[in-house]
Amino acid sequence: MASTSVPAAVVVDGAYELAEGGRWVDDRYVYVDILSGRLFELRDDTDPSAPRQLAWLDVPLGAVAPVGDRPGAWIAAAGTGIALLTPDGALEWLDRPEDRTPVPSRMNDGVADPAGRFWAGSMAYDGTHGAGSLYRTDPDGTVVRVLDGLTIANGPAFTADGAIMYLADTAAGTILRCRVDPVSGELSGGPETFAQLHDGEGSPDGMTVDAEGCLWAAMWGAGAVRRYHPDGSLLHTVTVPAPHPTSVCLHPIDNRLYVTTARYGVKSPTAASGAVLSIPVPVPGTAGCTWRAGRPVPKG
Rank of each mutant, 00 (worst) to 15 (best):
T142L: 11
T142R: 15
R145V: 04
R145M: 06
V146S: 04
V146C: 10
G149W: 05
G149F: 06
L150Y: 00
T151M: 01
T151Q: 01
I152C: 00
I152L: 05
I152V: 14
A153L: 04
N154A: 13
N154P: 02
N154K: 13
G155Q: 11
G155K: 09
A160P: 01
A160L: 07
D161T: 11
D161H: 03
D161Q: 08
A163H: 11
A163R: 10
M165R: 03
Y166N: 12
L167G: 00
A168T: 05
T170F: 14
A172P: 00
R177M: 03
R177N: 08
C178G: 01
C178Q: 02
R179E: 12
V180L: 11
D181I: 05
V183E: 13
V183A: 12
S184V: 10
S184D: 03
L187H: 09
L187T: 05
G189R: 07
G189L: 14
G189Q: 05
G190M: 04
G190Q: 07
P191C: 13
E192T: 12
F194R: 05
F194M: 05
F194V: 07
Q196S: 09
Q196Y: 09
Q196M: 08
L197V: 04
D199K: 06
G200C: 11
E201Q: 15
E201A: 02
G202T: 13
S203A: 04
S203I: 03
P204S: 15
P204Y: 08
P204M: 10
D205G: 06
D205Q: 02
G206F: 06
M207A: 15
T208H: 12
T208F: 13
V209E: 09
A211Q: 03
G213M: 11
G213V: 11
C214A: 14
A217G: 05
A218R: 05
A218F: 03
G223N: 04
A224K: 08
V225E: 02
V225Q: 07
R226Q: 10
R227I: 09
S233K: 07
S233C: 08
L234A: 06
L235W: 00
